[in-house]
């Protein structure tokens, strides 16, 4: 059992590790952004998929407006008789204009523009629909009718999301590895600065654990301080990004958000940085001391 003995000089420590909290701040900042990207994407993807899994869209693309109207009404009355559908509603003119406005501009959507009819179908939960049969029947009503179950779009989205998430986690991993290397270099620099003190402590009978504990405590402090700075700057950045995203009207990005629980996970980063720094510093000191008598 050894009591804690404060024997390292603060001024020598500053000379060796003054920049460490700032480097840690950068690392935690990058880590927080990558983590926020990954976690928010994960949430958004769940929202998108759960929203679209139970939805179908019928598109009737006949140029003649009278014929289009006739076929749409026939399709709606057929869909009303299909079991397992919660609803089948036509997307009205105003809603269609809202959908097209970001792409064409609201003023360019005139009444003579041949816009296809869209029917939004909601499938009852836990019900399966024979899509091939429905599609075949719709084709008899309107040869140009298209039944879209969004699977192609969802598949592409999932693929992109997996790549993005893997990239974010890759960044987190690289940042953690770089942080460990920085702490190892910092600890070695600190030990070189305090070499004489360490030698004297050894000669007076100090155990390696006593010396390592003192370094561990200091690096834990550096890690927490840097982590705190990094997470505060990351929070400001994320807040600014969130503001910008909400200003993009009609974009899928508006569904990108971070729940409070996930945000709390990011707020824990300074503690994680402190623990990582402490463990790495202790391991480095113990390893280096083994080389001394």
């Amino acid at each position: 059992m050894t009591s804690r003995v404060v024997f390292l000089s603060d001024s020598q420590d500053r000379a060796a590790t003054s920049l460490l909290p700032w480097v840690m701040a950068v690392m935690v900042y990058l880590c927080a952004l990558a983590l926020a990207g990954s976690l928010s994407l994960q949430g958004s993807l769940t929202a998108w998929t759960s929203d679209l899994t139970h939805r179908l869209t019928v598109q009737i693309t006949v140029a003649d407006p009278v014929e289009r109207e006739k076929q749409t009404e026939a399709a709606l009355s057929y869909l009303a008789s299909v079991p397992g559908l919660e609803s089948a509603e036509r997307i009205d003119g105003d809603a269609m204009k809202d959908l097209l406005a970001p792409w064409l501009g609201r003023d360019n959507i005139t009444n003579d523009l041949p816009i296809p009819s869209l029917i939004d179908i909601v499938v009852e939960k836990n019900k399966t629909i024979n899509l091939t049969a429905v599609q075949a029947r719709l084709r008899t009503i309107s040869p140009q009718a298209v039944l879209d179950d969004h699977q192609q779009w969802l598949g592409d989205l999932m693929e992109l999301s997996v790549v993005l998430q893997s990239t974010f986690w890759g960044i987190v991993l690289l940042v953690v590895l770089a942080t460990i290397c920085i702490v190892i270099f910092g600890t070695k620099a600190g030990m070189a600065e305090h070499r004489d003190t360490i030698e004297i402590m050894h000669l007076m009978g100090a155990h390696d654990t006593m010396i390592a504990t003192e370094f561990q405590r200091r690096f834990m402090h550096h890690g927490f301080k840097g982590g705190l700075i990094g997470v505060v700057i990351a929070a400001i950045t994320l807040f600014a990004l969130a503001k910008l995203i909400t200003q993009i009207e009609g974009s899928v990005l508006t569904t990108v958000s971070l729940s409070w629980i996930k945000a709390m996970a990011i707020l824990l980063l300074p503690f994680a940085a402190a623990v990582f720094s402490a463990i790495t510093a202790r391991w480095t000191v113990m390893r280096e001391l083994q080389r001394m008598l």
């Binding site: 003995v5 000089s9 603060d10 020598q12 006593m210």
Partner: peptide, 28 residues
């Protein structure tokens, strides 16, 4: 040990330097 070049810890006071061996041995 009394070292020829003393080898005291410059950031500690005389009292703290002298107390080091006792503190290392677990005293407080």
């Amino acid at each position: 040990v009394v070292f020829q070049e003393f080898r005291l810890l410059d950031h500690l006071t005389a009292v703290e330097n002298v107390a080091l061996p006792l503190r290392i041995a677990g005293g407080s």
